[in-house]
Design a protein around this nucleic acid. Sequence first.
DNA 1: ACTTAAACGAGACGGTACGTCGCGTCTTTTC
DNA 2: GAAAAGACGCGACGTACCGTCTCGTTTAAGT
Lengths: 210, 210, 210, 210
Amino acid sequence: MPSDNVPSRPRRSERARRAILDATYDLVLEKGYAKLTIEAIAARAGVGKQTIYRWWPSKGAVMIDAFLPEGAGEETEVDLPDTGDLAADLKGVLRATADEFADPAFSARLRALSAEILLAPELAPDVAERVLGPGLRAYKKRLLAAQQAGVIAQGDDVDLDVAVELLLGPLHYRWLHDLGGITHDYVDTLVDFTLAALRPGATTTSSSSS
Amino acid sequence: MPSDNVPSRPRRSERARRAILDATYDLVLEKGYAKLTIEAIAARAGVGKQTIYRWWPSKGAVMIDAFLPEGAGEETEVDLPDTGDLAADLKGVLRATADEFADPAFSARLRALSAEILLAPELAPDVAERVLGPGLRAYKKRLLAAQQAGVIAQGDDVDLDVAVELLLGPLHYRWLHDLGGITHDYVDTLVDFTLAALRPGATTTSSSSS
Amino acid sequence: MPSDNVPSRPRRSERARRAILDATYDLVLEKGYAKLTIEAIAARAGVGKQTIYRWWPSKGAVMIDAFLPEGAGEETEVDLPDTGDLAADLKGVLRATADEFADPAFSARLRALSAEILLAPELAPDVAERVLGPGLRAYKKRLLAAQQAGVIAQGDDVDLDVAVELLLGPLHYRWLHDLGGITHDYVDTLVDFTLAALRPGATTTSSSSS
Amino acid sequence: MPSDNVPSRPRRSERARRAILDATYDLVLEKGYAKLTIEAIAARAGVGKQTIYRWWPSKGAVMIDAFLPEGAGEETEVDLPDTGDLAADLKGVLRATADEFADPAFSARLRALSAEILLAPELAPDVAERVLGPGLRAYKKRLLAAQQAGVIAQGDDVDLDVAVELLLGPLHYRWLHDLGGITHDYVDTLVDFTLAALRPGATTTSSSSS
DNA sequence: ACTTAAACGAGACGGTACGTCGCGTCTTTTC
DNA sequence: GAAAAGACGCGACGTACCGTCTCGTTTAAGT
């Protein structure tokens, strides 16, 4: 009779877990990441500090969980619209993103996550995968469809990962360093530039050196 | 014309100032920004804490000063090479930048500055102007020269600020979120994409809405 | 009248009980009372904390039980030797006691019990009765025999309880406050002083007031 | 000119020191030693915890200082009265002591100090010297005077330290273990017994062994 | 050279938060 | 239904730094 085949279930309190994530979410928006403390989270959540330390290794890890939607399993992938008009589709999504940047709640969250990555780089892969991942994959999927439709160039030299970064990188860079407004015009320009760069036959001639 | 005749000149100790900036610089590289404390700076510099608080409003302000080269007056602008081959010039500079990203000291500094901006957004303009500014202006200047040489498109719809962000934004984005390697191939691709986007007549046809 | 016929027998685990008392005993000797914790007892005993709280009201109560010999019912009273030579008998027992004070295990236990009494005075009667009681009664019984043999004074003014305290009080006082060595000479002196005080006709002349 | 001959004075805040000692004193009386915490002391004193840890190694050390009168330099020795009537003098002082034992404040202090010694035996010498010392020396001095007056026995076998313990040991023992009331009668009995033991020629005949 | 006022090093101060330990209660599962 | 296991809310621990505040002690200007 093989008895102890039970891996000692951790019997975690769902109530406490949700209270902690909610408190964290609210506190980041209210006070900002710089003022976020474990003690404040615990107090707001009506929870002992130890309960936080028991389940998360750091403040940043709590925050990442707090910023993810609840049912974020791996099957829940998002899709960009595909009307056949790539430029319009991208501009539609990026304009919505631009609007989000104007939302204090959104930028507070992004600020917090970015700061956390910089202070604790070991969290970067987790953020990249769980937070950015779905979005990046959605963009890439849409570009792939466009590629197959012949709207943008094909070939080994057309790296769609870079193409996605061409759309989002400037946006984040401008936001982070406050280099200019994140307007609809701005994101339209980004889309226009990016699609021009991806136009079939666009990058064929270019000098280089080692 | 003997103007501001300085009635109460602040007899500031140059020795202390340099010791503080050097200590800050060293500590960021050794321990990282997250472990940087005013007390550690003061101790390392052999300086009283008050001397730091007397001359800088915050830890971030000290850090910005610590990371700027000493003779960084406003007249010292840098220039990109101009061999006539825009792609080669850009790739040369960006490959050097890519190499810098591989340097722990460089990335530690960049990490620290970026974190500081996120935690204290009021410092962003200062960093944008004094740290990034010269670089951004140099890129823009080179693109402007290329524009005048007819290598890249002209016109109101060609925003060179955005063009510069197209080169640097993806680079920082990829670095910050650890999305992939910062290789010479990568920056070459960025230059190729960007120049393709900027090629005369590239962005003329594109749908849009709203 | 068949009284307490135990209708709801508390299915108490003897194994757990002994493990708890043993663990407590061992931990006090190893780490000292100051480091004794319920969690440590439970862990060492391989027992849930609740099992301790179920059967004892406090840490001190566990300790008292842990320090009593197992078959310490009320019928087990001890006796001092009675060779007819009171001084020799007392010195014999007290010298053995003095030797015990030199034993780290003994003094650790005494230290723990005394501390417990001071921190939780409600336990004092229990300790006085169950721990000290048998010893005190044995001394008093021996003195009573000596009194009846005419070796020490009789009368209402000869309080044998005080006489016993005269023997043991100084010993504990000296030990607790580390006022001097607990040697055979010392306890001999105590016995000599005490017997001198108790000698028939000793305390008849003495002034007093109020 | 030898400059640095100054031993870098610690610049300690007298205000904080007094506030800490007063708060400790008050808290012991109000809540008892078992509930005394560094945090409560700091809060009551309006002081940072670090200020306590900076100047005292432990809670017990603070307490000892808190319980000593302020001007407790080594020259401030106390004397027992000396009317020529030793028994009356001793009874007078011990009756006052008995009254103190009835005072909740006094017994709370004594309880706290005793507990501290038991939990941290390394403090025992300090307590013995600074707290008990003056009292013990005063008793011994009075007995010495009586000895020289011929009231009590002289000789090498008359250890006045033990004599003092004969007076105080039983008192503390009875108090600690709650063995009986600390009445005037009780202390009178102690004095009578002790003086009977010390009477010239009292301890000459007594058997012994080993 | 002498005076004098600031800046300086040192570090104590009242605080806040850290991450850990143990409390006594509770909940779940096993025997 | 007691027992093991251990999560829970809570309170205190002792430490690290914060930013402010004295302390003497340089130190450089302006007599």
